[in-house]
């Protein structure tokens, strides 16, 4: 083997290992840094109170609740829409051009940056019924529609054609087949879509800044949805950038980090669970 060839091989091998190590080190550093700086700042008081100027106390309970509300509201709306769209594509659509158009639209939606969603959400929703969690949730619905649609579609494709034919053969109508055979078959796709969407909603900030606002009021779910409110990410941004409260910001960052870990973990577990069930 000549020298040049050896050098090439050595360089490429080295580059591969170094780059993989950089990636791994980055993740470790980010995790470590955020958790070490954040966890000591998490206290029961922080988690269970709302901010008060009188006692100079900062609490993030309103932000936690706002996040929960917005996740619930978004999922309630996006699930039927996304699953319905996926069912249309796999069960009904015969026109190839139409399918291509819908899929292209979904791809376009998933490529649009969140700041643009924020602007359009502001024009479409906030300007019509006020800056509110609901306006934020509706914006997030558009953002997450392609995700739910795609995961559902993937799992629908794995429902064997023979099941459908069997049901048709027994005299079932199309809707009955969908309700009794197709829908139960796409549960895993719907759950995966849910998990991915929750992850995206938790991490979203740019789209919510102008649609859901940044209030820290403590509300029940129905008042909460119709009034402005900051989610955890938006609160992090405000505390870090506008108010210089880095301790609080790190506490929120640590919470978000742990939630991200849990979401990734559950996505993997769900995937494995359903893969196993399929193979049986």
């Amino acid at each position: 083997m000549n020298k040049k060839r050896k050098l090439y091989i050595g360089f490429m091998r080295g580059a591969m290992i170094v780059c993989t190590a950089i990636t791994a080190a980055l993740v470790l550093f980010l995790m470590g840094y955020v958790l070490i700086n954040g966890i000591p700042n998490i206290s029961w008081e922080l988690l269970s109170t709302k901010p008060s100027y009188l006692t100079e106390r900062i609490g993030i309970l309103p932000d936690i609740l706002n996040t929960v509300y917005i996740v619930l509201a978004t999922l309630v709306i996006v699930l039927p829409l996304g699953v319905g769209a996926a069912i249309y594509l796999t069960e009904y659509a015969k026109n190839k051009k139409l399918v291509a158009m819908i899929e292209y639209a979904a791809e376009t939606l998933s490529g649009i940056p969140s700041i643009i969603y924020g602007l359009v959400g502001m024009l479409l929703f906030s300007n019509n019924f006020g800056t509110s969690l609901l306006a934020g949730a509706l914006t997030l619905v558009i953002m997450n529609l392609p995700t739910v649609m795609r995961t559902t579609q993937e799992s629908l494709k794995t429902v064997p054609q023979s099941y459908r034919e069997g049901a048709f053969g027994l005299g079932a109508g199309k809707w009955r087949v969908i309700r009794t055979v197709v829908l139960p078959g796409c549960v895993d796709g719907v759950i995966t879509g849910c998990i991915l969407s929750v992850g995206r909603i938790l991490g979203e900030s740019a789209a919510l800044l102008f649609t859901a606002g940044f209030a820290h009021a403590l509300n029940g779910i129905f008042t909460g949805l119709t009034s402005p409110g900051a989610t955890l990410t938006v609160a992090l941004y405000v505390y870090a950038k506008e108010e210089g409260e880095f301790g609080i910001a790190f506490a929120i960052a640590a919470i978000l980090m742990i939630l991200t870990l849990l979401i990734n973990l559950s996505a993997t577990l769900v995937g494995k669970y359903f893969a196993k069930r399929r193979n049986v």
Partner: peptide, 9 residues
């Protein structure tokens, strides 16, 4: 995990 970390973090 890197992909899931929120951009504000």
């Amino acid at each position: 995990l890197l992909a899931g970390i929120p951009s504000v973090v």
